[in-house]
Nucleic acid binder design. Sequence first.
DNA 1: TGGAAGTTAGTGAACATTAACTAACTTTGT
DNA 2: ACAAAGTTAGTTAATGTTCACTAACTTCCA
Lengths: 192, 192
Amino acid sequence: MQTERQIEIIEAALELITEKGIQGMTIKNLSKKIGITEPAIYRHFDSKTDILLGILNNFKEMANMLSGIMESYEAPAMEKISFMFSKMLELFSETPSMVSVIFSEEIFKNEEVLKVRIVEILNLHSQTIEGIILKGQKEKNVREDIDEKSLALIAMGSFRLLVKRWDINNHNFNLSAEGKKLITVISKVLEK
Amino acid sequence: MQTERQIEIIEAALELITEKGIQGMTIKNLSKKIGITEPAIYRHFDSKTDILLGILNNFKEMANMLSGIMESYEAPAMEKISFMFSKMLELFSETPSMVSVIFSEEIFKNEEVLKVRIVEILNLHSQTIEGIILKGQKEKNVREDIDEKSLALIAMGSFRLLVKRWDINNHNFNLSAEGKKLITVISKVLEK
DNA sequence: TGGAAGTTAGTGAACATTAACTAACTTTGT
DNA sequence: ACAAAGTTAGTTAATGTTCACTAACTTCCA
């Protein structure tokens, strides 16, 4: 479990990455943002890498939860994907700083332990969507002329690009509205 | 124009970003890779930012060229998109280090001048594909039940995700083959 | 012979991290 | 019940290392 201070540090770290990129996520900036001194950070985390790992572990847990929900959710594939993406849109609207990290695998390239974690998260999301689509194809409510991996690539890829655009353009459009629009588009593309 | 040494520096910088992320792209690593001393780098570029800008300017030029080719290319939309993505796959296979940068907007967040450039490149690619699809819709060989912006989002998003996966998984699958497969999938999705 | 491209040896600033210490709590033994 | 002992979360000051970058000198080639 994470203490209140650890959660505060992780949230501040996320905000820093959003504002100034991974290069701006320094212990100095972090401590300044929270209002304690730099060494005080080390009362709560052993290292900077541990802070980043804390972020990724939270994301991994969310991905696992979402995957679990989707497995025990009996509904047509399109409804499930719509639900999953809507849930993610909700999360991003609540915590916009998430999006600068969750879809930015490249910022963790320099540390193997972080790179492995973020790839795990990407793979988990992929598997969840592929699973939904494959089941939908078996139940004959998803088109079968394209394999489930390619359809998942389309769904995830377009969703990721929309969210990334929102991020790098400083949230200058309504992500929730555009996201809903994309969900109906994806439904149309998947349907038989 | 760029001198031979400038090109060498830019190529080495690209490789460094691929191997160690933006955090590993230091003047020290760069000079070590090329086999000259750190100050020698500054005989060819005024600053580290200028090196990164040099990279992005090359990409911008490629994007402009590609956009120009597509405008003067008379063919059905699907053929044009297939041509464009194939050209990019060729480029990525020749210079794999490109892909760690061209689809990694996050790593330029800390420098406004770089951020602006990479967003320009993303927008240029989007516009090129949107233009092709819109023309295809007018010529009645692309589906019209989904607007051109959403279809472009799907095409670009899925292509980006495929390439990003290839990058973060250390090129452990055949990008060219998987890319060709995706191109036929995108064609199927776009067709009327 | 002069300028382009390299060198050596340095700069100050920023980096993550540690050492030494303290104030304010809580736990424990008698 | 209360003091000794231990814990938690913070401080200031400093560590060694790396960062981008520069001044001054040298080598090399047209």
